[in-house]
Structures are given as C-alpha cells and as structure tokens.
Design a protein around this nucleic acid. Sequence first.
DNA 1: GTGAAAGCGCTAACAT
DNA 2: ATGTTAGCGCTTTCAC
Lengths: 338, 338
Amino acid sequence: MKGTPVTIKDIAKALNISISTVSRALRGMPEIHESTRTAVIKLAEELDYQPNQLAKNLAKSRTKTIGVIVPNLSYYFFSAALNSIEEAAMQAGYSVMVCQSNESYLREVTNIQNLLRGQVEGFIISLARDTNDYSHIHKLMRKEVPLVLFDRYADEIEATKVIVNNKEAAFKATEHLLENGCKKIGFLAGPPNLLISTQRLMGYKEALEKHGIAFSNTNVFHTDFTQDNTVIKTLEMMSTLNPDGIVAVSDRIAFSAMFALKQKGLRIPEDVAVVSFNNEPICTLLSPTLSSVSQPVQEMGTEVVRLLLRQIENEHKLPVETKILETNLIVRESSARK
Amino acid sequence: MKGTPVTIKDIAKALNISISTVSRALRGMPEIHESTRTAVIKLAEELDYQPNQLAKNLAKSRTKTIGVIVPNLSYYFFSAALNSIEEAAMQAGYSVMVCQSNESYLREVTNIQNLLRGQVEGFIISLARDTNDYSHIHKLMRKEVPLVLFDRYADEIEATKVIVNNKEAAFKATEHLLENGCKKIGFLAGPPNLLISTQRLMGYKEALEKHGIAFSNTNVFHTDFTQDNTVIKTLEMMSTLNPDGIVAVSDRIAFSAMFALKQKGLRIPEDVAVVSFNNEPICTLLSPTLSSVSQPVQEMGTEVVRLLLRQIENEHKLPVETKILETNLIVRESSARK
DNA sequence: GTGAAAGCGCTAACAT
DNA sequence: ATGTTAGCGCTTTCAC
C-alpha cells in the first residue's frame, strides 16, 4: 500500500557508503565520523526514513512489546490502570498489546496464546472472574516468560504481583460503618474464587469481630458482577437479613445495590449505609454520593511495569516479589449517618 | 529468558529433510507427502515448536496487526467498541494494538508514531477532544496507510468512516422531550470542534424549529467533558435559561448535569427532563433511570474492522466510504413526564 | 572510521 | 514431493 519504504540500503547507496555505516550512524555509535553521521541523518530525514522494526526485532530477537490482559476495560479501575501502564511502558520504549478476557477463562487462554505468538516479551495479567484453573499461567511460568499479576491474582500462582491490602481496606470500610452506628452489615461479594473478594470478606469479618459482632456466612451474598444478578442478591439480602449497612466489593456492585435499595423505598444512608471499592469518578455524582475505597491505580500501573521490565531486562530469573500498596477510604454521603 | 526456541531448522535437521519441506508441511501445503507431514507435525508438537512470528512477518513483510486509537477506554462506548473490534480482528487473524489518546492531541500524534514503527498495517481512530489540527491524519493518508475513523471524525478528513446519524438521533431525542411537554430545552454540548457534538446540536435545532420554537445559541452550553466543568455549565444554564428539559451530548455529561440539578433541588423529570447519548449500562441504575440514545457499538466495531481489512488486503487504493448506522432512543424515567 | 559478510527464522521462487 | 537458493531489513562480528 505504501509508496516506497526507504531502507538503510537506499541511504547507503545514495551516499555511496556501506549499509553497516548507515546503521551505525543512525544508532549514534561513537566510532562514526561526524561528517558521515550528519550526512546520513540528514538524508534519512529528507527521505523520511522509518526503520523497519520487524527487521530490527528479528536481528536482535527482541520485540519491545508487553502483553496486558485484563478482565474488562469498561471497569474504571482497569482502564485507569492501563493508562498508567501504557504511559510507563512508552517511557521505557516498550509497546503494549492489550486484550480483554471479558471475565472468561477461555478467552484469557486464547489471549495468552495470541500474544505469545505476537512475540510479547512479558505479561501483565489480572485474572478473569471465571478463571479457576491456573495451568495456563503455570505453563507461562515454566517457560520462564516474564510475568506480573496485579489486582486479581491467586495464591496458587507464585508470581510477582502488585496488589493492595484488600483485607485491611475492607476492615477500614466495615469499621467505618460500625462507627456510624450500623449493627447489621451485609457483605456483597464477588464470585467465591476471586481472591480480592474473599480477602475483602476477611477484613469485613475481622472488623465485625473486633466490635463484638458475630460473623455469619448467611450475611454474605455472592454476585457474579452483573447488574441483574447483583440486584437479585441485594433483594435477597434485604429479605433475609434486612441490613442497616452494606459493604460491596466493588462500586459497580454498589451501584446495583443502591438501585435495589431505592426500589424498595429504603433511604441511603439513613436506612442502609453503603460503602464499596474502587472509587470510580461517578461515585461523586450519585445521589447519595458513594463512599468508596480508592486504590492507587496509577502507582499500581507504574509498579507493575517496573517489575515486569526488571524481569525482562535481567539475564537470570529474579525472585518472586509481592508489592502491596495502600488504599484510602473516601467517606461520602452513602455512609454518613452521623 | 526462554530455554531453547525450537526453529524449523531444528526440526529439519532431526528429520533429515530440508527446512522448506518443514515450512511447507507446517503450513499445510498440499504438495507435501502425507507421511512427511505427519512426521513433521508430530515432532513439532513434541518439541513444542512455536513459529517465530517476527521472522514470518519479515519474510512476508506483513504484521497482521492493526492499531486502534481511542480517546479514553473508561468511556463505555469505546471499551465496548474495542471489544467488538478485538473480536472481529481476532477472527480474521489479526492482532490489535490499542492506545488511548486521553483526549490529547499530542498523545494522539505520538500514539500514531509509535504504532507506525510497531508496523501496524492500518489504523482505526476516533479523534481526541483536543484534536483541531489534522495534519497527522493527512500525513497518514498521504502515505496511503489504511485508515478508518469511527464516531469522532472530522469533515476535513476524507477517509473511510463508520458513524451514526448524529443529527437524526438528536432530533429524535429533542422531539421526544418536546412531545413530553418540554418548552425550554437546553443543550449541553461538548467542545465546539467536535463534530459529533455539533451534529447533535443540529438535530436539536431542527427539532425545535419543526415544533415552532426558535433556536438560540444562548441555550447551548459547551462542556469539556470533565465532571467539574459540566456541573458549572449546568448551573449556568439553570440560572440563565432555567430549562424544563436538557439534551446532553453524552451520558457522562448527563450524569454531571443530573447531579447539578439535584443539588439545586430540582426534580427529574418533573422540573427538568433529561435525555442523552450512549446508553451506558449504568443508565438503568440511576435514579431516575436515564433516557439515552443507544448506538450500535458492536456493529460499529465489526464494520470498522471489515472496512479496514478491505483496505489492507486490497492491492490498490479503495474509494473512501462512509457507513452510517442507525441509533435507537431508549426512553426511561428521566424524560417520562406523561 | 568503514566495509564485507554472516545471520536472525522464515517464505518463496526456481529447480529437480 | 522435496531441496536449493535468495531474500525480508537490520545488527553484528571480524577485518582492514
């Protein structure tokens, strides 16, 4: 389609020098004479020479590309993280190939395969909701492909990861509700296999116990993250538990829960206080505005890239590392009962 | 990092045949003898042979990769579109490299440069909010790089595009408000240079005129898509126009507007009816639920990929094409005054 | 400081 | 049906 892709060969011919000299000049190698270098660079610009990355990559057997797989970019958390990942990667001269697993295990597996044959040098992965089997990840690790997990990980996977202190965050959130006078707090969880969900559940449990309230599994309702299912689970919770407070494992879940509460004619926070996770920008626009635990998305992105590039650019296998970042509870109207 | 990348050479040597035979066998060329083919494939699997895409690409000078640049993946519209783009591309054996311009002109330009050197074979672009200058796009077109614009385009760019009938959609939305008894309808627009915004404005204008209401520029307020700015503009609109209906150019803008209205103690839709564009899933969870124009995102994604691949896979330059898809107004509580 | 030549892993004529 | 030979565009020894 293009007109005439200019190559170093063309430049060499035009200047009557060898292609290796051109190559060296273009890459700024010190041994090249000043005059030839300037001549080469000048001509290259005139001809609008674009190095063929493919050839470069093949010659150096490097692609300078990393693969990113996230559940869904329509979640604010992931698109924000991707933003920061892209930025950090670009700064380091890497490109990013992103795939969405769409919360599907199968798609996660095919994504990995595709990216692998696309010759990415490493992976940044946040596991899909439906991923219970980790053989695809383990296979990656056996091949010693550089890998960093973030946010959605699994204990069975001994890989480097960047996560937040989910338990502590949920503890803070739950305690906040307790301190605001809630006595019966329900927990809207995600799928039972999702670690971030169960960890947050642990924090919830600990907060209750610290405040002398017995934890009961019947107060925990597992959603699959979809709107409809969450509404159903919330209504179930209303009829069986009738809580005066809800900790939701994500903002999206809280949105649906608040919708269900309003449908039932319940006031937030007077009848039911709500707090959740992710601090999506829209939290400030809801009525009532939604209290939420904010995660250091930007820092997570930067950190994830840093840890991945360390692996990629190191000769030998690096020890597994777990970076835990801190969260921050943002209190808004949905939980302000005092 | 990996142990030993197996190549066709290794397979050839082990089987005592030539590498071209291996290559042909692996690619299922018909002229290869059944027995040798099976032997090759068997050994390839045993050795877990992975073709080096880089070498393949260089040899065929094709990357089978397309570049996608969108303003921001945290907008539902774009992440949904990306989903469908990814899917369609994958089906056709292509990979996708995505970049977010973050609504910034500069980032859009660097994104194009990066993707270009990443050797993408074509571009799918939705312009950034801040893009007023189109020289980077024109440069692409001069190089005859396959390109399809979608959603956010510009009249000055004579490229193939996939869009919706924005004017008509806005006409429907505005007329809907009029039919619901609104007399003073304000328009919350995006930046004046954004075509989708001005087109929707046209539809708004036509609907007013059809119903015998004079259009006035003072009823149009331009936002920059940020929450804060939109709240400010809405408040301005309230004090200068005091409308009984608002057409917002996107759901995100409507969210902020509704927030501002509620702050002012106004009821939706009784005092002010609201309708917007994009039909984000969260529209059904707001109170009141938000009436919105839904766009055929999925179809747009498929179509965009189809048009791009046609360009990529065609020898000669194809004529510019504009595909206009239809929208659908979804009426919900925010505009139901009757 | 520059050039010649080999090679990255694969495909694609052109032979046989 | 299979092998031989050139590349693809670049990097990188190894000479000079």
